[in-house]
């Protein structure tokens, strides 16, 4: 099933083009990686998908519904939120410091699933917590009592609570320690297999992209320079920029190349 369809999307801020003519699709149960460095436009694309920016031109459809125009009513905005949820990079600033995991998830459930009663919500909160590997004690803990990895699990649980068709992972594992990052990457793969959710993974880390994504899109200065199955993009990059990114990844026993003057 096609979850996301983006067609010739562009965004300009004043006379500056942030995103030019970007097209891609996302199928259920798969992951599309958007790779690029700072200024490549990847965050602008994410913000347009989430409805935080309005496209200058082009079309975005999520679950068949057009969302190129701003939502007119609160109910429409809520429907869009149910279709697509975001997990941000920094779990220290993306959670309400006064909300425990349970109250945070309960709020999402009440908003998106008004038919659920209190007992059903409590059961679902427990289910989401166990799916994301958080125990009972952590359910009542405030964010400040949790580690970075645990907070990111809370952010993932919160996104899952809406039962979205698409999850937008905006550098969601970049700020985590290596040993914890592996746990979260495994968790994301499990959730995808269990629920059929589609991921849009925004990342600068090619190893993470290789591990989690099926298809990749490489952005530079707001334009797509390479697009295809992740294994092909990483193994046989055709664009020099993709090759540069690939060669910039540090590896043991390989002396860094001479720096390019700029």
């Amino acid at each position: 099933m096609r979850l996301v369809e983006v067609d010739r999307l562009s965004k300009s801020f004043g006379d500056r083009l942030a995103v030019t003519d970007v097209s891609f699709t996302l199928e259920a149960g798969t992951t599309l990686a958007i790779v690029g460095e700072s200024g490549s436009g990847k965050t602008t694309i994410a913000r347009m998908l989430a409805g935080l920016e309005t496209p200058t031109a082009g079309r975005i459809a999520v679950c068949g519904d057009d969302r190129s125009r701003p939502a007119r009513r609160a109910s429409e905005r809520r429907d869009r939120a149910r279709q697509l949820q975001i997990v941000f990079q920094d779990p220290y600033s993306s959670l309400d410091p006064r909300q425990s995991l349970s109250t945070c998830l309960d709020e999402v459930l009440r908003l998106h699933h008004p038919a659920m009663d209190r007992a059903a919500r409590a059961a679902r909160v427990a289910e989401l917590a166990s799916l994301t590997g958080l125990d009972g004690r952590q359910q009542s803990a405030l964010p400040r009592e949790l580690s970075g990895g645990q907070r990111q699990r809370v952010a993932i649980a919160r996104a899952l609570a809406a039962e979205p068709a698409v999850m937008l992972l905006d550098e969601s594992v970049s700020a985590l320690d290596v040993s914890v990052q592996a746990q979260i990457l495994n968790l994301l793969a499990d959730i995808r297999a269990a629920t059929g959710v589609g991921y849009i993974l925004i990342s600068h880390d090619l190893a993470v992209v290789r591990q989690l994504s099926d298809r990749s899109l490489v952005l530079r200065h707001g334009r797509v320079v390479e697009h295809g199955p992740t294994s092909e993009v990483l193994d046989q990059p055709t664009h020099p920029y993709t090759r540069l990114l690939r060669d910039s990844v540090p590896r043991p026993g390989r002396r860094p190349a001479r720096p390019a003057n700029s």
């Binding site: 645990q150 040993s179 746990q183 990457l185 495994n186 591990q211």
Partner: peptide, 23 residues
């Protein structure tokens, strides 16, 4: 554990060997 937990740029692994717990 650290070397094994890191995703590999050369190939996707069936499962990453995460270190349980946290630092």
């Amino acid at each position: 554990g650290l070397l094994g937990a890191r995703p590999d740029i050369e190939q996707a692994l069936p499962r990453l060997r995460a270190i349980p717990g946290q630092p």
